[in-house]
Design a protein around this nucleic acid. Structure first.
Lengths: 164, 164
DNA sequence: AACAGGTATTTCAAGCTTAAAATTTTTGTA
DNA sequence: TACAAAAATTTTAAGCTTGAAATACCTGTT
């Protein structure tokens, strides 16, 4: 009998943790969205795409981009379309494979993203100001059991083989 | 000079924490979405709406519902529309206010939600199995500084004044 | 009673998201 | 070379999300 009670209360604690995680990330995401919209007239998905591209100066193929961002293929198409219209991203053909496109930031895009990224880092720091570095490290360590360690994109994608 | 370095590394730790929180919740959310779709042919937003309604047997007005869920007004309309079509939710007029609707679970809806909720709790427990109750409590406490304590919906909404 | 202002909800436009289908191109094999 | 299978991308359909505009209704004041 006590076995059931015990594992039940464990489950309840984990459910509370899940609800708290959800509430926290939703709260932070909502603030970041507001800020990106009001201060840079952009969106979180656009920011995410530009962040990914900024880490790969050689650009990425569409499928690599959706792989890095872990979103569906078709999703990225529309976001890139709009970033191209805004002059922040360009598509160039991949020599030797007429199916594929390589997308990368323009210098305008890089400039704009740099401004956005430093503001973004400030916002996050402010939003998490109530958490000490020691606590932060602890939480990071604990949560690593859920998703595994932070992946190395370049390694996952075999980009080390690419020419610069 | 060291001042700058110190606050910089603090900011970096908090940014890492944010990325980890995001990765963790995205991961869990993705699994829950898959499961809800494959096992119950529903979605997370539908589940959230039904969860909210299940906590208020008297039903909620549309604006109360979007208040509890903290999403926009217009958003809820479409989700409720579809739940009504499926027979899980009904809209009834609010006596004395012809603008408002009261929405609540049907008995079918309540039955279906109960099944979904217990599966959901199991999934969450499994996904967070790597975290001990002590760790969970610590994280919950730490994150409370970001969003404040878990609110009491009934109190926030003045529902205590409602007749049963 | 009239009416100004507020409230409850829906509608709308734009963008994000996914899974699945469709298109085009490449690649391996017979 | 022919051709089937695989790969890269786009398109499509359905649903979620927001903020803002539109509707309909209520309420207090004059």
């Amino acid at each position: 009998m006590t076995g059931i009670v015990d594992s039940d209360s464990l489950a309840k604690t984990r459910l509370r943790l899940w609800l708290k995680l959800l509430k926290t990330t939703n709260h932070i995401e909502a603030r970041l969205r507001e800020k990106l919209r009001s201060e840079f007239d952009t969106t979180l998905p656009r920011f995410d795409v530009m962040a990914a591209l900024s880490r790969f100066p050689n650009g990425l193929k569409m499928s690599q981009l959706s792989g890095v961002l872990k979103v569906s293929n078709g999703n990225v198409t529309g976001i890139i379309d709009r970033l191209v219209v805004d002059g922040f991203v360009t598509r160039s053909p991949v020599p030797g494979d007429r199916r594929a496109w390589r997308v990368h930031l323009t210098s305008d895009g890089r400039q704009e993203f740099d401004r956005q990224a430093s503001a973004h880092a400030r916002w996050v720091d402010d939003l998490l100001a109530g958490i000490s570095p020691r606590e932060a490290e602890m939480i990071i360590a604990d949560l690593t059991s859920v998703t595994g360690p932070s992946g190395d994109d370049a390694h996952e994608l075999g980009l080390e083989k690419e020419a610069t």
